[in-house]
């Protein structure tokens, strides 16, 4: 389903939490809302499932104004995940996940099967977790259950408000990776709020940067890191070139350059360092710096020699000359 904010504003007294916000999310895309704390991300997000009503402007889901859809009906078809998870403490994991299907009056057998399927999807063995109490889960486990609860009725839209903001960095990375995996299997339209730029770059098809209730820019991650707007440059930081490199893999870059002719490596001699094609260009740069060389041999995970990666390749990609 497509999603759209059309001139949406929200005022609390004199303060404008969101100011004339307009943006469209195509079907199946993941939009990340990013920006400093208090810039209006949560308010914009909550307009979609009507936990906040805009003071002016409107929100369209598949072209329909959400204010015309009965509110419980709307929410039962939009998955919602929040940072503090908000599992129901008096219900076990299976009952939490089955909450929306129960509201939709699915039969017991169907709910039970769906709960198992979802626990499997989020990587929690159903036999161990179905009957666990929320109070006994770790932060990471609780958020997996939170995601499963949001996905239970297979909603076409998923709203996530800093879902991985409260877990430790290691767990966060695991959850991000698994979220990407889950997303690639279920093509849903997702709006994801974070204040963490790295997370935004990692997950987003499109990143919308907000400041003071307004949309500053919306672009694909690669383009955003090249944006000349002073606020965006400041927000992306001096190491944005490294962030760009971190998004690209050695394999993709090698693919664009001419494969090496059998028998010779050209003028820079035979590099001694190796880099796997599934590594990022940022890791390649680090290896080059460490080895004091300006090129590396790229090898596939199975050990096959795939080509040569040079410092020139890195410079081009960091400056955004090659692909975006």
């Amino acid at each position: 389903m497509t999603l759209e904010w059309r001139n949406a504003s929200k005022a609390y007294g004199k303060k404008r939490a969101v100011n004339d916000f307009s943006l469209e999310v195509p079907k199946g895309e993941l939009l990340v809302l990013v920006g400093p704390s208090g810039c209006g991300k949560t308010t914009s997000l909550r307009m979609i499932n009507r936990l906040v009503d805009p003071s002016s402007g409107k929100i369209l889901v598949d072209g329909r104004d959400v204010s015309e859809i009965p509110v419980t009906e709307l929410r039962r078809h939009i998955g919602y995940v929040i940072q503090q998870v908000g599992l129901f403490p008096h219900m076990n994991v299976a009952e939490n996940i089955g909450a929306v299907p129960r509201l939709l009056k699915w039969n017991k057998v169907k709910i039970q099967a769906r709960v198992r399927e979802l626990l499997d999807l989020v990587g929690l063995p159903a036999d161990d977790y179905s009957e666990a109490w929320p109070a006994h889960l770790s932060g990471g486990e609780a958020q997996r259950v939170g995601v499963a609860r949001a996905l239970a009725a297979d909603p076409p839209i998923l709203l996530m408000d800093e879902p991985f903001g409260a877990v430790d960095p290691l767990t966060r990375e695991v959850l991000q990776r698994e979220f990407l995996r889950i997303r690639s299997t279920l093509k849903k339209t997702v709006v994801f709020v974070t204040h963490d730029l790295d997370e935004a770059i990692r997950l987003g098809d499109c990143i919308a940067v907000m400041n003071g209730g307004r949309l500053v820019a919306a672009a694909a991650p690669g383009e955003l890191l090249l944006n000349a707007n002073p606020f965006i440059r400041d927000f992306t930081g001096e190491d944005r070139a490294l962030r760009r490199l971190a998004r690209l893999s050695v394999g993709d870059t090698i693919g664009q350059t001419t494969p090496i002719a059998p028998g010779g490596y050209g003028d820079s001699g035979t590099p001694t360092g190796l880099i796997r094609t599934d590594a990022t260009l940022k890791e390649a740069l680090s290896l080059m710096l460490e080895a004091g060389e300006s090129s590396l041999n790229a090898v596939s995970p199975s050990g096959r020699h795939m080509g040569k990666l040079t410092m020139e390749n890195l410079l081009e990609n960091a400056a955004g000359i090659g692909v975006s």
């Binding site: 929410r75 919602y80 403490p89």
Partner: peptide
Amino acid sequence: PRPVLEAARGIGMSRLQVLLQIELP
């Protein structure tokens, strides 16, 4: 806890359902 109530409303419980299924228990 606020997040529990927010989640209850966010998943689409009516006000009466929030009262009977979440708040009172």
